[in-house]
């Protein structure tokens, strides 16, 4: 009887835990999930390679009007240049499935980046959408900031005005620079989670 009861207790636990399986999203203050992806030059990068540095993750799709809003006037590139000069690592991640909008070959991506003077540390391919779904990336752009300890410090929109109009950029508060400024001066991040806006990620 004792053994039987113990066995059944284990079964209850198994049943209880079994119901707990669902999709994962990331939470601020928790470890950002590690990943390993190939970049447009064929090199592999892991998030854990950048421990000790601030890392910005940018979900990107060059054909999305909301991404164009920030790339056509050079806003995103300026941000990339500015932050990488401060030692921040900038990873652009593309989760478009093959054949879907925004899915380009590595050489095409390099061409686009050269033409637009984009300066991320690396442009990573996540064609099976695994990393995107792990982070709960919903839109392009969808931004994440990871601190030097590997904890997630910011997730959400690029800035405070959800629109596809570049004219709104100067009026908006850029949440990513704000978060990194906060972090670098040792303050808590003022807006640590915002609602991202943009096109759907083309999983």
């Amino acid at each position: 009887m004792k053994k039987l009861t113990a066995l059944m207790g284990a079964l209850v636990l198994a049943a209880v835990v079994g119901t707990g399986l669902a999709q994962a999203t990331v939470q601020n203050g928790a470890m950002a999930p590690d990943f390993t992806l190939k970049d447009s030059n064929g090199n592999t990068h892991s998030l854990s390679d950048f421990k000790g540095k601030y890392v910005v993750l940018e979900w990107v799709n060059f054909d999305c009007p909301f991404v164009k809003k920030h790339y056509v006037p050079g806003n995103m590139q300026a941000l990339q240049k500015d932050l990488t000069a401060k030692g921040v690592v900038w990873l652009s991640i593309n989760s478009s499935a093959p054949g879907k909008q925004g899915s380009y070959s590595p050489s095409e991506v390099n061409q686009i980046m050269e033409n637009s003077s984009a300066m991320p540390t690396a442009y990573l391919f996540d064609s099976d959408g695994k990393v995107g779904k792990q982070y709960g990336a919903k839109t392009t752009p969808h931004m994440f900031v990871v601190d030097p300890e590997g904890m997630l410090a910011y997730q959400g929109a690029i800035d405070s005005i959800p629109s596809f109009d570049s004219a709104d950029i100067p009026k908006a508060r850029n949440y990513v620079t704000a978060a990194i400024d906060n972090l670098m001066s040792g303050e808590p991040v003022a807006d640590a989670a915002t609602t991202p806006y943009g096109c759907s990620v083309k999983y």
């Binding site: 209850v12 198994a14 049943a15 209880v16 079994g18 119901t19 707990g20 994962a24």
Partner: peptide
């Protein structure tokens, strides 16, 4: 990160 209520066990046919 799970949102559960009491009685959730009964959603599992194994239970």
């Amino acid at each position: 990160g799970q949102q559960i209520g009491w009685g959730f066990q009964f959603q599992s046919p194994y239970f």
